[in-house]
Every structure is written in structure tokens, then in C-alpha cells.
Amino acid sequence: MTKNVNTLLLETEPFEPEGGGISGFSIEYLILNYNELAELPFEDISSCLKEFIMNEFIIQSADENIYSVTRKGKIARIIHLAEKKKLQPALKEQYNHNPEDLILALLASNKIDEWSQSSFTATGIGIYLHQHTTESINDAITILSSKNLMATEAPFRNDRFRITALGLQHYLSTVRQTLGLDSNTGILTPVAEEYTNDKFMNLPNLNDHIKENLNSRWSETEKCALSEAWLASVIMLGSLLEGVLLAVLEAAGKKALNATSAPKNRTSGNVKSIDTWTLQDYIKVAIELKLIPSSIEKHIHELRDTRNLVHPNKQLRENIIADESLYRISREVTETVIDALQQQ
């Protein structure tokens, strides 16, 4: 299964505006710390890094083993997250807001959504707020500091800024509402990746009731993932896969019923009603009808199997750990199926 290496790299810690505390990284570091990258060929990762060097997203050390992310590379991460709709609207469309408000929101983020970054450098702020000029950001920092709404971490770290008690009160009473953030959402709170009804509208011949159900299931999946409930996320993705295939095959009608792999009643020999088929049946018929590519059949059956983790005995017996890596793989399988179906 093809994975977007560029996307995976941009979402690693070294590309965070403050670098995640990592000044440099190697391919070995990426493989050892990110399971999705560990599953990819070494050559694919190396090729992507070469492309990033050409785009000036990273620079290579003299010994060619260590890479460092440039300001341009870190901004590329922010743009990427905006394109994937993972950024809060206030940060995605920051040009609509005063840099003073945005800076206070950044500094308050660790108080609101438990963001690990307790303070920010001017450089980091500038990367987050790349739609504003360096001059306007520096002016905003000067104004906020003069009003005692933010301060440096003197005497030890004069290059880092934190929010003051007065600044937090001002943020909670005024800025939060101005930026359209609710009490539980900080400006750095990731936005769930959601399929909208428009996405499901492209699936062939489905009524609105079915589309609403599919969209609701996707939203439930996102909520589970955002809470790091990986087991629930994987089970929901399996549920969504079954719902999508059932709906599309029912819409296909006689074409699905006449498929060679359509399950038959042992006694009568007649094809069973589609709504009584198993997920395995749905997958076989969908592949036979070329609704989804046969190249991903193995991965779809793996998702079908992980969906059965809803049964505790299966998970205990097979010692399967439902973690973020399993969720990401399962999600990619589901997205691949949906993308294939909407092209019919």
C-alpha cells in the first residue's frame, strides 16, 4: 500500500515550530521513533529527504547523517496541517486576526489544552504566525510585554516567552471569544479530520439517510482517535467499512446478487439477501465487481480481522495491541476503499 512519506515526515516532531526539543535527526531516529515510517523501505525515506533538501525544508550535516529542519520546512508543516484541516480556524486563517491576540492564544495553549510547550521563542511564534510579517509580530510582542500580558523566562531563558497571570485572564475574558475558541479548545488543539456529507455524496446511488449514518460513524471514529481511544477507533473503522460496502452493494442490486462470489443458501442454493452477508462476503463481491482494487484485498481483510477485536477473548488470545499505528493503518485502508468507491 502506497503511503505518503512527505506527509508522514512533516508530522514528525523535528518539523514542529519549536522542533520538539530535537535539533537534528537521522533516518535511524525516524525509523526507531515512528512506526509508520518503520514500515516503509529505507530508500523511500531517503528519497523523500533528498526532495526536502531540494525544497530547502531541511539541510544536511557535513557527515551527511544528520538533518536539520529549516524555517521553511517548519512553515511547510503548518501549511500541510492547514490543508488537512487539522488547524483551528483562527490559526488557519490567522490573517483575519490581530497578532497580539494570536500570540496570547499560543502562550495560553498549555493552560487550555495541556500542550507540552510551556513557552515559545520569537522564532517559533513567527513560524506559527507565518501569515504575519516579522515586524508586526515583534511589534505585538513589544506591546504585550509592555502591558504585562506576557514576559520572558528571565533570568535563565530571556529568549523564551510565557503568558502572565494578567495575560491569561485577558485571554480567557476577551481573546478566546474574539478568536472563536470555546472553553475546552486551545488554538493548538488538533482539529479532527472529518469526512463531510459532501464526501459521502460522491458515493453512488446512496440515499441521504445512509450518508448521514456514515458521516455520523466517521465523526464518532474521529472523536475516539482524538481521545487516543485506539481500540474504539479501529472497531469503528471496521464498522464504517462494513456500512459503506453494504450500502454500495445494495445500490448495485442485481449486479451484486449475480456475482460469482455472492454467498448462497446451502439448502436452496439461492443467493442470500445482501443485508445478511458477512463483511468477508462484501469484500469478495466488491473486488469481483472491481468496485475496489484487488491490490488492497489483503489489507482490507486485515482490517476486517482487527474489527473483531470488539470481542475481548480474541484480543487476549491473539495478544493484539490496538495502538496509534494500528489505527493509522486501518484508517488508510478505509480511506482507500472510500476513495475507490466514489470513483465508480
Score class of each variant (00 low, 15 high):
Ser119Trp: 07
Asp113Ser: 10
Asn96Leu: 06
Gln117Arg: 11
Leu102Phe: 02
Thr123Tyr: 04
Tyr128His: 12
Gln94Ala: 11
Gly126Pro: 06
His97Arg: 07
Ile112Asn: 05
Ser119Glu: 12
Trp115Pro: 00
Asp101His: 09
Ile103His: 04
His132Asp: 15
Trp115Phe: 07
Ile127Lys: 00
Ile127Ala: 02
Leu107Arg: 11
Ala122Ile: 10
Lys111Glu: 13
Asn110Trp: 15
Gly126Tyr: 03
Asn96Phe: 01
Ala108Gly: 12
Lys111Met: 13
Phe120Glu: 14
Ile125Tyr: 15
Ile127Val: 03
Leu102Arg: 01
Ala105Phe: 05
Ile125Thr: 14
Glu100Phe: 06
Glu114Gln: 07
Ile125Trp: 13
Ile127Phe: 02
Gln131Asp: 11
Leu107His: 14
Gln117His: 11
His132Leu: 09
Ile125Gln: 15
Trp115Glu: 09
Gln131Thr: 13
Leu107Thr: 15
Tyr128Ile: 04
Ala108Asn: 10
Leu104Arg: 01
Leu102His: 05
His97Ser: 09
Glu114Leu: 10
Ile127Asp: 01
Ala108His: 08
Thr133Met: 10
Ser109Trp: 11
His132Val: 13
Phe120Cys: 03
Asn98Ile: 01
Thr123His: 03
Tyr95Thr: 08
Gly124Asn: 06
Ile112Val: 13
Thr121Pro: 02
Ser118Leu: 05
Ala105Tyr: 07
Ala108Lys: 06
Thr123Pro: 00
Ile125Pro: 13
Gln94Glu: 08
His132Met: 10
Asn98Leu: 06
Ser109Phe: 09
His130Cys: 04
Lys111Pro: 06
His97Glu: 09
Tyr95Glu: 13
Gln131Phe: 07
Gln94Gly: 12
Asp101Arg: 02
Ser109Ile: 07
Asn98Cys: 11
Thr121Arg: 03
Ala122His: 07
Glu100Cys: 14
Ile112Ala: 06
Leu104Val: 03
Pro99Thr: 02
Asn96Lys: 00
Glu100Pro: 09
Ile127Trp: 02
Tyr128Val: 03
Ala105Trp: 03
Leu129Tyr: 11
Thr123Ser: 06
Leu106Gly: 15
Gln131Glu: 14
Asn96Arg: 02
Ser109Asp: 15
Ala105His: 02
Gln117Asn: 10
His132Ala: 15
Thr121His: 04
Leu129Cys: 08
Ala105Thr: 08
Asn110Gln: 12
Leu129Ser: 10
Ser116Asp: 11
Leu107Ala: 15
Asn98Ala: 08
Gly124Met: 12
Thr133Ile: 09
Leu106Gln: 15
Thr134Asp: 15
Ile112Pro: 08
Asn98His: 08
Thr123Gln: 06
Ile112Lys: 00
Leu106His: 15
Ile127Ser: 01
Glu114Val: 00
Leu106Ser: 14
Glu100Gly: 10
Leu107Cys: 15
Asp101Trp: 03
Ser116Ile: 05
His132Glu: 11
Ile112Ser: 10
Thr133Asn: 11
Asn96Cys: 04
Ala122Glu: 13
